Amino acid sequence: MFTPTALLADRWHPTAATVRRAALSALVMSVVIVLTGGAVRLTASGLGCTTWPRCTGESITPTPEMGIHGVIEFTNRMLTYVLCAAIAWATLAARCATPWRRSLTRLGWAQFWLVMSNAVIGGITVLTGLNPYVVAVHMVAAMGLVWVAVLMWERTAEGDGTPELLVPRPLQQLSYVLVTVVGLLVAAGTLVTGAGHHPGSSSDVWRIPIDYDRLAQAHADLAFLSIGLTLAAVFVLAAVKAPRAARARVRDLLVVLLLQGVLGFVQYFTDAPEIMVGLHMLGAALTWAAALRIPLALRTRPATDPAPVPAQLVPAS
């Protein structure tokens, strides 16, 4: 069937390296949008644009009366188009590469629809006056985008054959537990923010009615659990002589978690200065990405599944 992408695929044949770079650009932008979203909150610009999808009831762009807060909020909205452009490049590169790997284009489209859904959630965030629960969902959805972007980037270095484990299955299950705990750690961080400092606007914003110190303690407990599981993975993977890439990724996660822990404690005992919170949000995205890469290093995927051997060629037992 004739489609614009099919027409482009007839004329452009990007290399595997180009597809991988395009997927990496989408991943980088998914992390950048988390950081710029944090900048909106930390500069109290969450209501810089007073409505959605317009910036004001009469204007798509901010007006001079809205000041710097309107500019910051509108700039973050415009960066969504840059993110979409990076995702489009990755998706088109995957579609036009030879051979065409539908699994990669599906991951590209998944990223696009995640961006669209999160744009709607962002609009609801503004329309609800920065409701902290909606803000938390907005952040979790952004981390979902990072998840799919990591998967697409990693899949560009693999084939589409059936995954083959490189370690005993219990180690794969340990990696899944580690990813789950890190995911809970990130989610708990959004609740701590929703109950504590930096509501996102200088106006009176409703906060989560849970004791801030208790939420921070639960967040710290999940951090200690994440570090403990990561240390266990370091020793176990070394003991079974797991692939070098897997051991390196676990060490990377440990380093990022320890840095995040230091940032978190400094942030807590210094009343959450903006620069520390911003670095902590960037670290959250990097920690999540580092955890997601570990299970993917414990398996291999050939280009294609081996062809079945005809029954007449199978030796009798």
Rank of each mutant, 00 (worst) to 15 (best):
R54N: 08
L92K: 02
V135S: 14
C84Y: 08
A239W: 05
R102H: 07
L215G: 11
V182Y: 08
G122W: 06
L231F: 12
G264M: 13
V262S: 07
L165E: 03
G67D: 03
L222A: 10
L166D: 02
A110P: 12
L79I: 13
V181D: 08
D252G: 15
W113S: 06
A119F: 02
T270F: 11
R299A: 07
S103Q: 11
L24N: 08
A157E: 11
L258I: 13
C49K: 07
L298T: 11
V262L: 14
S202D: 09
P273L: 12
V126F: 06
F224I: 15
L292Q: 05
A94D: 08
V140C: 05
A142E: 05
Q312D: 06
W100S: 14
I68S: 11
L254G: 13
R244T: 15
L166C: 07
Y212C: 00
L27N: 08
T56H: 06
D160H: 00
V182R: 00
V146I: 14
L292P: 15
I208M: 00
P62Q: 02
F265Y: 10
Q172P: 00
S317L: 09
I60T: 02
E158Q: 05
H198V: 07
Y81M: 10
A6G: 15
L229W: 12
G196H: 04
A223I: 15
L286E: 08
D160E: 14
P273R: 02
V234H: 13
R11T: 01
M139A: 09
L253R: 09
R155G: 01
L47Q: 11
E58A: 07
E274H: 07
A272P: 02
F112S: 10
L225C: 08
A233M: 15
T270P: 10
V205W: 05
D213S: 11
A242N: 14
T287E: 08
S30A: 12
L174A: 11
T105H: 06
T128Y: 08
E73P: 07
W100F: 09
P243T: 05
Q267W: 03
Q217C: 01
A119T: 03
G161V: 00
L259R: 03
I227C: 05
R106T: 15
M152L: 13
R247K: 15
M152Y: 04
A238C: 04
L24I: 04
Y268L: 15
H197K: 07
F265T: 15
R21H: 13
P4E: 02
V256T: 09
T230K: 03
I227W: 05
V19M: 09
Y212H: 07
D160K: 00
G278I: 01
L92Q: 04
P310T: 10
S226M: 08
A233L: 13
M143F: 14
L42T: 11
L229I: 11
G196Y: 12
G228D: 03
M152H: 02
D213V: 15
